[in-house]
Amino acid sequence: MARRTTANAPQLKFYQKLILNRYLLAQFGVSDLRELSANMKRPSLEEIDGEGVTGFYKQLTAQFGGKCMISEEALARYDLNIVSHMRKINDKRTEPMVLKYFQYLSLLFVEYYLDEYFNDRQGLIDRLNAYIANFNAQFPNDSYKPYETKDLNKIAIWNATGSGKTLIMHVNYYQYMHYSGGKLPDDATYILLTPKEGLSLQHIEDYADSGITARIYDKATSRWTQSANEISVLENTKLGDKDQDTVVSVKRFGSRNVVFVDEGHRGSSSGKDGKWQKYRDELCGVHPVKRT
């Protein structure tokens, strides 16, 4: 995440200062999500044709093709990936996922980001920093320091309550597997952190409905007994500096994990003087996959 550089009174509201969000919108030649999504709300666009192409893709390319910085070929590939991942989830669901426009855009942004991150990381940094330089010139009271490589291994998806964030996260799991090549190092784990036990149990059920293997983390069980690509689920309140009866040492997991966080705002600064966020950062401090 880009970091603020000045203590002067800010000029912009919080949502206007989300650099990565602004940058992604700029790739379509717009500065506001409402402009990008204005013509994407028709139910007919939720349909997928016989070739596996969404109406959303057709609308985006028809409306923004002339000014979009992302090639039509890349957008087509992202669209097919999203449909493929969604169909994996729907294979076992009694209520299939049908993407709404805001869910599709969330997944499309993640597709673009992961593609850039794994396949042109330095180019992504260069383009983000060029955008930041322009942003800082326009809004000096809200300026940010340039991105570094270590700033790129965390992204946040911000959607309203009831907007289907859980299923979006299931697709995110397959998106990550696709771009990373589907393998983690021996000392890495897929982890889901939640704010409370009830949510952890609910996620286990939701993962099962989507055909994704997940279980509540048990420190008495060896990680070597986990099935491939299994997700360990636990509450951030159970992480600590060392093992105790109901506490798991964050050091057990190392720092090369892929971490999904549900309701991340609950663990950003609250509890144990902000240690929950510190533990989250430790879990994914070193990126687990380097593509060659």
Rank of each mutant, 00 (worst) to 15 (best):
G65V: 00
A76I: 01
Q16H: 09
T246Q: 12
A208D: 13
G254L: 05
L114W: 05
G285A: 11
Q277G: 08
S270C: 02
D243E: 12
S106W: 02
S44I: 13
Y131C: 04
A133P: 03
Q27Y: 06
F14R: 11
T237N: 09
R127W: 01
S37D: 12
R34H: 11
T5I: 13
A208H: 15
R22P: 00
R3C: 04
V250L: 11
K41E: 14
K165E: 07
I125Y: 01
R93L: 15
N8R: 15
V30G: 04
F109L: 08
V259F: 03
N8W: 05
I231F: 01
A137R: 12
L36N: 04
G123T: 04
N129R: 08
F14V: 06
F102Y: 15
L99C: 14
L199Q: 15
K17H: 02
L18T: 04
T161N: 06
S270P: 02
M69R: 08
H203I: 04
D91C: 13
M169Y: 05
N153Y: 13
K100E: 15
D206H: 13
L234P: 02
V248R: 10
L193V: 07
N119A: 04
K242M: 10
S232E: 07
T225Y: 08
D151C: 03
V258T: 06
G164V: 08
K238G: 00
K100G: 11
I191V: 14
T6E: 02
L239S: 00
A133Q: 12
K251F: 04
D243C: 06
I48F: 00
Y144K: 12
Y113T: 02
N172R: 07
D49H: 08
L108G: 05
R42H: 13
D187W: 06
P96K: 15
M169R: 10
M177S: 09
Q138M: 09
F253T: 07
D186T: 11
G254H: 10
T5G: 04
N129Q: 07
A160H: 09
R77I: 03
F28S: 01
R291M: 14
Q11C: 00
R256G: 05
T221R: 12
H287Y: 13
Y190G: 06
T94R: 15
A160P: 03
P43H: 10
L36A: 05
S163Y: 12
E205H: 13
G55L: 02
Y23P: 01
S270G: 12
S270L: 14
H265F: 10
Y117K: 09
K150A: 09
F14Y: 08
N39Q: 12
E95R: 15
K58F: 00
S222A: 10
E197P: 00
I231Y: 02
G50Y: 04
Y112C: 03
V83L: 07
